[in-house]
Amino acid sequence: MRVLWHELRAQQLLFWRSRELAFFTFLLPIGFFVLLGSVYGEDEIEGVKGSRYLLAGLLGYGVAATAFAGLSISLVIRREEGILKRLRATPLPPATAIAAMLGSTLVVYALEAVALIAIGRAFFDVPVPDRLLSLALVLLLGALTFAALGLALTAFIRSGEGSSAVVNAIYLPMTFISGSFFSPHSFPRALELIGEILPLTHFIRVVRYVLLEHGQIWSRPGAVSIVAAWGVGGAIVAIRYFRWEPREG
């Protein structure tokens, strides 16, 4: 427990010291919210005020940026540089190392969510969510699911230099198709169908339900189980294929 706390604090220090990581995973979703909120925050989207609709989408973009993209890029880089291999020679248990990275990701995403909600309240007149327990649960589910998928993805990336290219190629289209920035109902039918498969679409749908319709997470078992199934799948792949050592040759 002492070691977990020690490692969690180190992971936090490392995250905030890495300006690129902190910018792309923490500041960018906030920047998009301010930007898009200023552009069509006052419009009506699917019968709701644009800025309220956007907040839910950007909580989705935030989870993809933080838990999925940020985690997998930094892990691939650490693996290829030999940092993970070095850790394996210390008494730090592998499970503790992973738990600390997940914990650190949750901290960053929680701060991100609080910041997005606060900015929504301060600048775009978005009410503070009233179903806080449901919101916390769905955000936790999303963070764990996308972290598991991020861990799984590291197994398929071969080099540190290539990691952000591969990750961006997956997560940027995913955030678009899942409707982080616009309503997916305005998309062509094919894109909408792809969106139906993606976990982010269902995650954003549950967040919108909780935020906009004052619903509870347990009233949406279908979408919740699709997100969770992706998470379990990701965890299985991660456990099976996660590597601590750089790829040689």
């Binding site: 010291r17 030999g82 070095r86």
Partner: peptide, 9 residues
């Protein structure tokens, strides 16, 4: 080991 970096920051 021969080549292992540590956290640069």
């Amino acid at each position: 080991l021969q080549s292992s970096a540590t956290y640069a920051n």
